[in-house]
């Protein structure tokens, strides 16, 4: 199904700071500091970034597991996840999540049947015991597992199979959006491709919109229609995958792409931008542009003023000196 134009899920100026109540005003971790994005039906939005850039916090806010301090998330235009009220039931049903570690996100004392049927029970989606069983069997087949396995426990499965169970559980409520937080990083490389292909197939057949969060640039490019690059809690660049990877506009994206190892020895002697140092701590982020401390283009303006995420078309970058792609 081609991506439509109406956004299913939208985030507006999300902020999340952890720990500021305990450590006083200055000690908080500014995990996400002003991120906006939209997700259209049937689309895959990839989010890449290094550890500590806030991509997992963003994921948790998008599904309502975490309340933003500021800003709001809307589902079909209706805001949720702001204020004190509980997340509406239809939003919880239609926005699901797949976690990184399939072993710790599955209850070891529940069988696969119980794990996958739990969301069915919560939302009253199975009329009878037979219907419940049949539905779980269907879901297992959908993710490429034999329905006979439904009475087994998570520890009896391999990593890739466990991740399939996690995906089946997310699909149980017929979601419109699945947020996948590093869904393949815990898997062996020979198994990663199975899960990546499964997610791509499910999207084609079910038309579900995906937010695919990962640190592996090649995997994100492979699955995504659009890609967002995060750095220290902010979106550095956001645009169609081919443009972000082909003609990156933000110096951080350029550095990230150039640092990624390429599985072709001939590519060894390519021109590379190697960044100095590590990403700064999100406890005390740099003023202005957060990337300026590692940026070779940084000037005085970058320390004074945080750049807006702007661009000529759908391809946006947050840099004072980004050159818009022709």
């Amino acid at each position: 199904m081609p991506p439509s134009t109406e956004p299913v899920l939208a985030a507006v100026d999300l902020h999340k700071t952890y720990g500021n109540r305990i450590f006083g005003k200055s000690g908080g971790v500014h995990a996400v500091a002003g991120v906006s994005l939209t997700l259209k039906a049937g689309e895959t939005l990839g989010i890449v970034g290094e550890s500590g850039c806030g991509k997992s916090t963003l994921a948790r806010m998008l599904v309502g597991l975490e309340r933003p301090d500021r800003g709001e998330v809307t589902f079909h235009g209706k805001p949720f996840a702001s204020g004190r009220g509980s997340i509406p039931r239809d939003v919880r049903r239609r926005v699901q999540m797949v976690f990184q570690d399939p072993l710790t996100s599955l209850n070891p004392r529940m069988t696969v049947l119980e794990i996958i049927a739990e969301p069915l029970d919560v939302h009253g989606l199975a009329a009878s015991r037979q219907a419940r069983r049949a539905k779980v069997g269907e879901l297992l087949e959908l993710v490429g597992l034999a329905p006979e396995l439904m009475n087994r426990f998570p520890h009896e499965f391999s990593g890739g199979q466990r991740q399939r169970i996690g995906i089946a559980r997310a699909l149980a409520t017929e979601p419109e959006v699945i947020v996948c937080d590093e869904p393949v990083s815990a898997l062996d490389m020979s198994v990663q491709a199975q899960v990546v292909n499964l997610l791509a197939d499910l999207q084609r057949t079910l038309g579900v919109a995906l937010v695919f969060i990962a640190h592996d640039l090649a995997v994100v490019r492979h699955v995504s229609h659009r890609v967002g690059v995060m750095y220290l809690g902010r979106m550095a660049e956001l645009g169609p995958a081919a443009e972000v990877y082909g003609t990156p506009a933000h110096p951080y994206t350029k550095a990230l792409l150039s640092a990624a190892p390429i599985p072709r020895p001939q590519a060894r002697h390519r021109e590379r931008v190697i960044l100095a140092g590590d990403p700064p701590s999100p406890v005390d982020p740099p003023s202005g542009c957060r990337f300026r401390t590692r940026c070779h283009q940084a000037q005085d303006l970058c320390a004074e003023q945080a750049p807006e995420l702007t661009g000529p078309h759908a391809h946006l970058a947050a840099c004072h000196f980004s050159v818009p792609a022709a």
Binding site: S158, S190, V191, A193, N197, A218, R221, H222, I262, P263
Partner: peptide, 24 residues
């Protein structure tokens, strides 16, 4: 051979990865 076909290449995005069936 199978590993090389199963990993996505940053410079050559293709539509389908050739996954290796089963697990180690």
């Amino acid at each position: 051979e199978a590993l090389l076909a199963a990993i996505p290449d940053l410079d050559r995005p293709s539509s389908e990865l050739l996954a290796i069936p089963g697990t180690p």
